[in-house]
Design a protein around this nucleic acid. Structure first.
Lengths: 216, 216, 216, 216
DNA sequence: TATGAATGAGGCTTCATTCAT
DNA sequence: CATGAATGAAGCCTCATTCAT
């Protein structure tokens, strides 16, 4: 995706392309069936190569998943940065992120990240043991932290909610695997859903005006 | 937990107790490592019995997980009903649920349900194929649906958010595995966290008039 | 069956009766499903006792089968002796045996012996290793040997067929598990079948008259 | 055995050869120990390959046995057809079969078929459930049926014995696992034994001349 | 480099046997 | 004696990983 296509030798470009195809297949399988059912055999079959070839690119199933995570995280952060650069106020930035992420929920890329983050099996394997993932996760949080702290200063967000809590609420609200179901079963459009969730989130984190009362 | 300890023969009580211990061990392993790593061998080892003994209680690994799900769902719904009976207004009921569930997040019971619901491998196996799970899930949603619809009538909740969306937002907000981390890493107390999340949620779903009422 | 009912204490008589019931159940299972599928659990269940009780009578599954074999062999030999005592000429003796055995084919007792003799699994286990079975087998063969040698002297049977071959032909002809099928599928009566097989066998082993043709 | 060695690629030939080796090992084990004791582990060990490799050729133990049965049945029928084509009269055909089969008794191939046919466990599994086996069995019976009916017309065989009975008598007479023992223990040559059994069978099924005596 | 056949550790499940009650 | 819960060895099968071609 961000691969330069010109300056490198053909062989290496082909290699890179195939690597992406392998990751794509792995991602699809991961979302469909989970980590254990994501068999090396089937990954290779979907790409149309031999199983051994997968091992020429990734030394183990675990490393393959790590690479997948790195790629998706990396793409994810890069896309976020683009959105952030285009919006001005913290609230506008957040709104852009919300829209982007909810759209992403319906693509497999983001679901793979969710699957990895939420599956205890994978969490143990990755978050706890491998620093790369933690690093990227941290990059993501830094961006959100900055937005929320800016927004507190500008009066957009409730200053009495600790920023880590805001970040968590943001991630939580957006990481919902159930939204998909809402669209399918309750006949909402994706646009409506985005609008509703966005409004919900902004009302929830808004700085309280004198007229609002504390619900507790 | 709800087992009567007096009227039944000793043997049966012991059997029931052991069954609970097996489910407890399975639950812990499921949360720690996921379904595949939850080996029958290790379940037995944790309970301190032989592998074959597990099979005297549950005919297969899959049935063991189904039983675990049934138990946890059942306990979960029962506890929720208790909370609902004690609160009066819809907002108060929700507040009770929020507090209960967030507390539950820190116990394994609820995490197991989340693990089962979110793991694609298990979702396929259970939600799609076994009606028991779908039935209990539906019972849960009915309760939430009723609260939200009552709350719309009483003016507590935004009438223009479709009820299924409210239900999803509720579940989403509360099913956050990351809250645990917040307490651990950012030194929040559980009580503070509950207060913050509650306020966030209620602001987010509140009817947007100046005259909002106190949910409690 | 041959148990004396008067001179022994009640307890021992009951014990002996139960032992027979266990052997009966084992026999039925052996014929129905073979040795491995003959589970100790099911034997006990069919008798209506606990599994452990079976082990009070027989120290192992193998010993149970050995006891079964002993009993059936013993009954078999005893019944044969009765028939032999009642018939006069060798041919009449053999005819009595043929009729008896073919009738027995349709009872489970004889089938169990066939099952044991013919199953390689059991043959290895019993004939080769345990002398009891070989001993009883030998008793059976002695009787047949005597009849055939008498019959050769009297001119009933072909003197140029070695007696062990005659014995084998006899056993072979009668041990046919396929006769059952003939009755079921081709609507022969048991009586007809016995008549046909008897005639076949006697013609086959008869001393040759000058008028018979050479088949080759 | 009937594999062409020239026209196919090397890989496929090796694969086929290995498959035959696996079937050979399975066959030997089946005859030696029966179906349950025929462990996949040991089959692999005897061929000198790993357990998993067996599963590259046969998807389950049951399928392996089915393939074994198919192969042996198929070879058996093919060889029989060769013999039949070379002999002219029904009696000569039968004599050829008798000689062939009795020779086969001393090879494992035929014993495996007997083991499968006679084991109740396997009978249930194969004859009742899988049509392939029934089909091949039927092919075998058709050939015998034709010979016997031809032989009745030509006056070689007793017309008053129903053909299915003749077929059964034939199979019964030849399927004797005890013949082996005769050669071993009573020092008969295989040729003598074949001559004796052949004569026995033909006398038994011959059309009756006026001079024969009725043994009953 | 690419292949895919081969490997074998590891997981689920069964069942003969034991033993505390 | 009788019970049947408990045990654990052993068997079938899968799949990540290796390696000869």
């Amino acid at each position: 995706m961000t691969t330069p296509h010109t300056s490198r030798p053909l062989k290496e470009r082909q290699r890179e392309e195939r690597e992406q195809l392998i990751l794509d297949a792995a991602e699809a399988l991961l979302v469909e069936k989970g980590y254990h059912e994501m068999a090396m055999d089937e990954i290779a079959a979907r790409v149309g190569i031999a199983k051994g070839t997968v091992y020429l690119h990734f030394p183990s199933k675990e490393e393959l998943l790590l690479a997948l995570t790195r790629r998706d995280m990396s793409n994810f952060i890069a896309t976020i940065d683009q959105h952030l650069a285009q919006a001005s106020t913290p609230a506008a930035k957040l709104a852009a992120l919300v829209a982007y992420q909810l759209n992403a929920v319906f693509g497999s890329r983001f679901q793979a990240l969710i699957a990895i983050s939420q599956n205890p099996e994978l969490r143990t394997r990755f978050i706890d043991q491998k620093s790369q993932f933690a690093l990227q996760r941290q990059q993501l949080e830094e961006r959100l932290t900055r937005i929320f702290e800016d927004g507190k200063v500008s009066g957009d967000f409730a200053a009495d909610i600790p920023t880590p809590v805001l970040v968590s609420l943001f991630e939580t609200t957006l990481a919902a695997h159930r939204y998909q179901q809402l669209v399918t079963e309750h006949h909402l459009t994706v646009e409506d859903l985005i609008a509703q969730v966005t409004r919900f989130f902004f009302k929830g984190v808004a700085a309280e005006t004198p007229h609002e009362r504390n619900p507790q």
